[in-house]
Simulated scan of single mutants.
Amino acid sequence: MSRSFPLPPPPRRAEISPRRPERSIPADDADELTWLLFRQADVLTGTQARHHLGASALRHRVRTCRWRQVHRNVYLTHNGPVDAEQRLWIAVLGCGKGSVLAGLTAAIRCGLRGVRSDSIHILRPGGLRTITPPAGVLVRRTETLGGDDVNGRGLPPHTTNARSLVDAAAWARSDDEARMLIAAGFQQRLVGADDVHQVVHRLPTLRRRALILSTANDARGGSESLPELRYLRAARRAGLPEPSRQHRRRDSAGRVRYLDVYYEQWGVHVEIDGGQHLDVRRQWADMKRQNEVWIAGDRILRFPSWLVRDHPHEVITQVRQALQSAGWRQ
């Protein structure tokens, strides 16, 4: 019969932080066990504990409630609350040899901001025996988990920035969420150039392979937000010309400005306002009237991100009119 090891309820999603809680650094002459507990946030496997203390000492600490068993062969070396860092170590150690944090959990660990994870995601080599993971842990297997995919200095062990983002996108609940994760990785400078492509080419059976590659292509070309990516997809489907993205331009004061989407040959700018403009849809009515005036003049078009998402045909219609007014012929 399998034993259960109840823990306090999982932390709120916002508590799963990429930052490690402050712990006292051991003295230089501290013993191996003290340093091991420091590195692993006071979480040990039974094998590690027996190696440093012996089986009887381990049993005594558990029996006297100084330590407690939190999963099969995993021990917490105090009887207080379990913090977010310790939950990650319990997940990694509880899933056995070769296990690493992966997907969205690892991406947050690598520094990805603005996202949350309900579960702890673990990746294990495919050839290892099946295990029962700790509560709140999702385990996936892979045949590709070499040195290029694992952060060798990460604690707890986790996949690299690029592999974390690719797996998170593949495991995402929707295509839009997958696109957002890849775009955010580029926007926050966690990945660049060909990082994502190199990971994808090592994973021939990857879910959403084409979507991840196309999103990475657009993101490294300058479109690093989900509304811009949505606009580009709609514009391509409509047969509009390919624009430049994040085009540099100096304003009248000499300051460098970046244009979201710029059709340079026809002098048409498309600016997509982000989430801060989502509160009142009346703003779109004002924008639309302003755009209709600009179509015949300056050809600077602004759209709220919700309109790009929910009514892309309205956006494309006005951009097409602006391009045609500037001399473009489809």
Rank of each mutant, 00 (worst) to 15 (best):
S252L: 10
A49Q: 02
Q69H: 08
R39V: 07
A322W: 03
L301R: 09
H197R: 14
R173F: 00
E314M: 15
P157R: 10
D273Q: 08
P9I: 04
S252P: 04
P157Q: 04
G154V: 01
I108L: 02
M180G: 13
A102T: 01
V70M: 07
S17R: 15
G154M: 04
A210R: 15
R179V: 14
R72M: 05
V308E: 04
E15N: 02
S174M: 09
G327W: 07
P156N: 12
S24W: 06
I16N: 10
A49D: 00
M287R: 03
D195T: 10
E242G: 12
G274D: 02
D298H: 07
Q198T: 05
R289E: 15
Q330K: 00
H277N: 13
C65F: 02
A30V: 07
P227R: 14
L104T: 13
L7S: 10
R302D: 09
R20F: 02
V62T: 01
R20I: 12
E264T: 13
Q188Y: 03
T45M: 05
D195P: 00
A49W: 00
R257P: 00
R208M: 04
K97I: 11
H311I: 11
P227F: 01
P11V: 10
P6G: 05
I122S: 01
E264K: 12
L307W: 04
D29Q: 03
E22H: 14
Y75E: 00
T77K: 11
R202S: 04
L88M: 14
T47W: 02
R320G: 10
R320V: 07
V293D: 12
Q48H: 10
D83N: 09
R209Y: 05
G96D: 06
S56P: 01
A193C: 00
I122V: 14
Q290R: 12
R50E: 04
L44F: 06
H71Q: 08
Q40I: 09
Q48M: 09
T47I: 04
E143K: 08
Y263A: 04
Y263G: 13
G254I: 07
L53W: 02
A84W: 08
L213Q: 12
L203G: 09
D148N: 06
A55W: 12
W35C: 13
L128N: 10
Y258S: 07
T45Y: 14
V270Q: 00
Y75Q: 00
L203F: 11
A49K: 06
P10H: 15
V191G: 01
G192S: 02
L7P: 01
V191W: 00
R207T: 14
E143S: 12
A27K: 08
A91S: 06
E292R: 15
L104R: 13
G114D: 08
Q265E: 12
D279M: 01
E228S: 12
G114V: 06
I131H: 09
H201Y: 05
A84R: 02
L93W: 08
I25E: 14
L37N: 06
P204R: 08
N291L: 06
